[in-house]
């Protein structure tokens, strides 16, 4: 494979993503692993894997995510800018981007040229983030890939009122103990998270389009829940888990 021109790394709090792109921004190769605390070694692994796939070495690297500062990349850019850039590259449309990551949820307003007009994030608390879902699904022994099936089977949604990850966990334990169906709890959880995220959106003009990026966008249950709570139509960015890495790669494209 030839034509690789840049590499983007998104060293997130939960997963480590990297992409190699060509001069036109097309993704040629991907790398994905759970985040390793030895981030330098993980970056070497990622670069090796990408160079094997693309046959190119010594490409310019753009880095984002919480681990970006430890990579020695040519450019370090925050996830907010990278997700905006990556998402706009895919759609070319203004709107509101919702990125639910491991520990951060970002709501980013994109302008006509893809510029960041404004952004809001969850406060210093993991409520409303991917980690919230992960912790509680683990407690319920529900594998991520089965979430959609659980939600489909649910007769109704069991309300989960706590938005704190820790308190919600104990709330869920007591709901299970009370005999509530797991399917309904799973649905209730997604609704609680969707409402929490939607509250970050604030007031938006009518007709605004929403776009979702980040690993949680791969969870169809979450997309369905957000579609109900957001005040406008929602689409999922292509390859949503790699949106940040794509934005990082685009930022170093000469």
């Amino acid at each position: 494979m030839s034509g690789a021109a840049a590499i983007g790394i998104d060293a997130g709090s939960t997963t480590f993503k990297a992409v190699a792109i060509d001069g036109g921004g097309r993704v040629l190769a991907r790398f994905l692993e759970p985040s390793d605390p030895r981030i330098g070694e993980q970056a070497v692994r990622a670069l090796d894997a990408l160079s094997t796939k693309t046959g190119k070495t010594a490409l310019p690297v753009g880095a984002t995510g919480y681990g970006r500062k430890r990579l020695g990349a040519a450019r370090e850019i925050t996830e907010i800018t990278c997700h905006a850039r990556g998402a706009f590259f895919g759609t070319g449309q203004p709107g509101v981007l919702v990125d639910i990551g491991g520990q951060d949820t970002k709501v980013i307003r994109l302008g006509e040229r893809g510029e960041v007009l404004d952004f809001a994030m969850n406060d210093k608390c993991a409520a409303g983030t991917g980690r919230f879902l992960e912790v509680i699904l683990e407690r319920l022994r529900v594998p991520l890939e089965e979430v959609a099936a659980y939600m489909e089977r649910a007769a109704g949604s069991v309300p989960v009122t706590s938005t704190c990850t820790v308190f919600a966990e104990s709330e869920v334990v007591s709901l299970v103990a009370r005999g509530e169906p797991v399917e309904g709890i799973v649905k209730g959880l997604h609704m609680a998270l969707a409402l929490r995220v939607s509250s970050l959106v604030g007031t938006v003009p009518a007709g605004v389009r929403f776009l979702m990026s980040g690993g949680v966008a791969l969870n169809p249950g979450m997309v369905a829940a957000l579609s109900q709570t957001l005040p406008g139509p929602l689409a999922v960015a292509p390859d949503p888990q790699f949106t940040g890495a794509l934005g990082a790669a685009l930022s170093v494209l000469a």
């Binding site: 996830e79 800018t81 951060d104």
Partner: peptide, 13 residues
């Protein structure tokens, strides 16, 4: 870390 991230994203605009 959170504050640093928000400030940098703000400056990037």
């Amino acid at each position: 870390e959170q504050a640093d991230n928000r400030l940098r994203a703000f400056m990037e605009r």
